[in-house]
């Protein structure tokens, strides 16, 4: 049986929804942290630094990795395409690129007070490290395995790996700066 060819509109959908998911992820991360930290953590989080690290290492990877492949869930449920597994990874990478574009621009905008040069350099610096593309390519591959086998456990395994990778990266960034 022939595989469904990957078309530019699929890449565009993945990219667009990846970009939109930045808003979902930022609100969800904030809400989750504010609503649950009081009840679920065995200690009171009063240290602002610790809250930032917890957000970066646990909450953000969990929420963002679930939100980024929204476009892929949409394609899978609406079209039920039979892409090659590598195509699903490519769609995931595009969703990651869309997410990174918006997140990086928002991040660069927060330091505009230091001047446009610093902001532009920071934007460039963040594009040097394509973490979101790698992590979402793994999640996208999981969506592909799920679509082909009908078994969601492969998707759960892949998205867990991408969450772990994202969390470790954020931990390293928090420690080293």
């Amino acid at each position: 049986m022939e595989n469904t060819p990957l078309r530019p509109r699929h890449l565009l959908i993945a990219f667009g929804f990846g970009a939109l998911s930045t808003l979902v992820a930022s609100w969800a991360s904030l809400a989750l942290m504010l609503r649950t930290s009081t009840y679920t953590l065995p200690f009171a989080v009063e240290d602002a630094g610790l809250v930032t690290i917890l957000m970066a290492v646990i909450v953000a990877p969990f929420v963002e990795e679930l939100a980024k492949p929204i476009g892929l869930y949409f394609i899978r449920s609406e079209e039920k395409p039979d892409f090659k597994l590598g195509d699903w990874a490519l769609l995931g990478a595009m969703a990651g690129l869309g997410f990174a574009m918006v997140e990086n621009f928002l991040y660069a905008a927060t330091v505009l007070s230091y001047g446009a040069d610093v902001s532009a350099m920071l934007l460039g610096l963040r594009f040097l490290l394509p973490l979101h593309m790698i992590a979402t390519a793994i999640s996208g591959y999981g969506v592909g395995l799920w679509a082909k086998t009908g078994n969601a456990k492969y998707f759960a395994a892949c998205i867990s790996v991408s969450m772990l990778l994202h969390g470790l990266f954020n931990l390293a960034a928090s420690v080293v700066g």
Partner: peptide, 23 residues
């Protein structure tokens, strides 16, 4: 099973390596 993923992630790893070198 994971060859397709490796083909997509491999160039991204090289991109990441270049990024860390310039970091």
């Amino acid at each position: 099973t994971f060859r397709g993923l490796a083909r997509v992630v491999s160039p991204l790893s090289f991109w990441m390596a270049a990024g860390w070198a310039a970091y």
